[in-house]
Simulated assay, not measured.
Amino acid sequence: MIKSQDPQLDFNINALDFPVGGAVVAIKDNKVVYSKGFGKARLGADEKPFTPDTIVSIMSISKSFTAASLLKLVDEGLLELDMPIVHYLPYFQTTDEEVSKRITVRHLLSHTAGFAGDLGIGDLVSPIAFNLRDFEKMKEQCGVTDTIIEGIRTREDITRYLRSVALSDTPGSNWSYCTDAYIIAADLFERVSGSSWDEFMESTWFRGLGLNRTTLYAHKVQQAEDHAAYYTSNDNVFRDVTRPDSSMMAYEIPFLVNQLGAPMGFIYSTAHDLGSYLSSYMNEHPYLSSYALHEMFETVWDFEEEGEGYALGWGTNRKENLLILEHGGGYTGVSAYVCMVPSHGTAVIVVSNHDETPSQKIAYEMLDLLLQAR
């Protein structure tokens, strides 16, 4: 049995892989066997160490939470994955109304709806978007004006924005990662359930799973003593960056905030909470039914790379007859990765506050060690 802080696992991790800070948690037989923080959560006058309980952005790992919220509605008989979205959201429509009627919930969650890629609108409505040096260029590329941005106040508004978006493929015929689709998924949740997605996640999902340091709300994070700031080596992404430690090539960027974008990538959590979250899928009494879990983890699209694919909010990878479920979270100032092997009760969580942290590499190497030790 590998013990917590086992030298073999410590030896496997190079602290220099964390340009500023981060944390790693490993789970084996559904128990935490390794938990350690590295470097700093914040630099400068307010310097703090990074711990497994440091609250940090997890970016696109948020998508698995959003997918799970819809699978909960499937369990309750309120939602069907292969039903066209327009059945639930009458205002869901792209520039091609007839083709739009064929896009299903499963298409939306598996990135096979036919969108050309990220639409950009989810990032442009962020309160910190105007701090991006390429803000005007992004608007031009996306065909978005200030008037459009000012008119978006809710996730329903983002769904309605799709009327100006053209599909690049027929639904189900191709895979193209569209992060904005998960904002629409939260709008779908609210219309079908009659409840606020944000309140459901906070009160039912996070608290129900005991994820007491996981939240959608940036102000709660910033009030916590143990939270991360975000750093990058590139001072050309955001305006008004600072360099709090002259000995490090690490520029602090604005705190990452996007309440409307929470379903696609703006949930905050900790390495320990994410460990509890992954364990919830692997224990004897998961929060979702066996049917819902099967649907969630079943590969919808196979990539050209052998064994790799995408399910609903999760990437899938098959190695030596093992199903690995995984997802990364990346943005300026963030690099995170989670992976799990449910059949072995094994998982690895890597979070960090710098975009150059090789989180996937760290996670894969740790997972290999855990599987070899069986």
Rank of each mutant, 00 (worst) to 15 (best):
M1Q: 15
D6C: 04
Q8R: 15
D10V: 14
F11R: 15
A15D: 06
A15N: 03
A15K: 09
P19W: 06
G21T: 09
V24Q: 05
I27K: 09
N30M: 10
V33P: 08
V33C: 10
S35E: 15
G37C: 03
G39E: 01
K40R: 12
R42H: 05
D46G: 12
P52F: 06
D53H: 12
I55C: 12
I61V: 14
T66R: 03
A68L: 09
L78G: 04
L78N: 10
M83D: 13
I85T: 04
I85N: 04
V86W: 07
Q93S: 14
Q93W: 09
T94D: 06
T95V: 12
D96S: 03
E97P: 01
K101L: 04
R102I: 03
L108T: 06
L108Y: 03
G120H: 01
D123Q: 15
P127F: 13
I128L: 00
L132P: 10
M138Y: 07
Q141Y: 07
G143N: 09
E150L: 06
R153W: 08
I158N: 09
R160S: 13
Y161Q: 08
S164I: 11
V165L: 03
A166C: 08
D169I: 01
T170K: 15
T170P: 12
C178Q: 05
A181K: 02
I184S: 13
A185M: 06
L188E: 02
F189K: 10
R191C: 07
V192F: 02
S196D: 07
F200R: 04
E202W: 04
E202H: 08
S203H: 13
G208E: 02
R213S: 15
T214Q: 10
L216W: 09
Q222Y: 10
A224R: 08
E225L: 14
A229L: 10
A229M: 10
Y230Q: 05
S233F: 10
N236Q: 13
V241H: 00
M249K: 15
A250P: 05
E252W: 05
P254C: 09
V257G: 11
L260P: 06
A262V: 09
G265Q: 04
Y268R: 02
L274Q: 04
L274K: 03
G275E: 07
G275T: 03
Y281Q: 07
N283K: 13
H285E: 15
Y287N: 14
H294M: 11
M296K: 00
M296R: 00
F297R: 10
E298H: 11
T299D: 00
T299P: 07
V300N: 04
V300T: 08
D302R: 13
G309C: 00
Y310L: 00
L312N: 08
W314E: 04
G315W: 00
K319Q: 13
L322I: 08
E326N: 08
T332S: 10
A336Q: 01
M340I: 02
H344D: 15
H344F: 14
I349P: 02
V350G: 01
V351R: 07
H354Q: 06
P358K: 03
P358Y: 00
K361F: 13
K361P: 12
A363T: 01
E365L: 14
M366Q: 14
M366Y: 02
R374H: 15
